[in-house]
């Protein structure tokens, strides 16, 4: 009988704990999945050199591959502010100018974001290349708005 009671308690705790985690831990205002470039620029010095994620759109014509080592530099924008990013490594396949990216790394005293990890944030539209070339635009969420949520 005792073991059964413990079992019931554990089951209820799993459900309650999972829901509680959603309500308090993850989605409280104190924790966001990524910062925007505007927020990064406003960082107090406590945040410098601290591992964070930043999300934004890769600025057109800002990507430059490094030749001395494997890596690249580019700019990330949320429409309001733009920050420079230095990345070491091979960027993911879908990393592209004019598309979303979430970079992991830290904001330095030299006001540059240093990263070893890029995640591509793709949009929700899907179509064949022929349509894209023909200039078709499907309805989708304004990317900059999705950064401000």
């Amino acid at each position: 009988m005792g073991r059964k009671k413990i079992g019931i308690l554990v089951s209820v705790l799993i459900v309650g704990g999972a829901l509680g985690y959603l309500a308090l831990g993850n989605f409280g205002e104190n924790l966001v999945y990524f910062f925007t470039p505007t927020e990064v620029k406003a960082f107090s010095s406590d945040y410098y050199q601290k591992k964070v994620r930043v999300g934004g759109m890769v600025v057109k014509d800002s990507v430059h591959a490094l030749t001395e080592k494997t890596g690249l530099t580019f700019e990330l924008t949320d429409g309001e502010s733009t920050i420079p990013v230095a990345f070491e490594g091979i960027p993911p396949d879908l990393f592209k100018e004019g598309q979303g990216a979430v970079v992991e790394g830290y904001w330095t005293h030299g006001h540059q974001f240093q990263s070893h990890m890029i995640m591509a944030k793709h949009s929700e539209d899907y179509m064949p290349m022929e349509l894209k070339r023909a200039g078709v635009e499907l309805p989708k969420k304004d990317f900059m708005k999705s950064l401000q949520q």
């Binding site: 591959a65 494997t70 690249l72 091979i90 960027p91 990393f95 290349m129 894209k132």
Partner: peptide, 12 residues
């Protein structure tokens, strides 16, 4: 060919 959509350096 056609203007490439997916060409950049350091890309597989």
């Amino acid at each position: 060919g056609l203007p490439p959509e997916n060409l950049r350096e350091l890309k597989l």
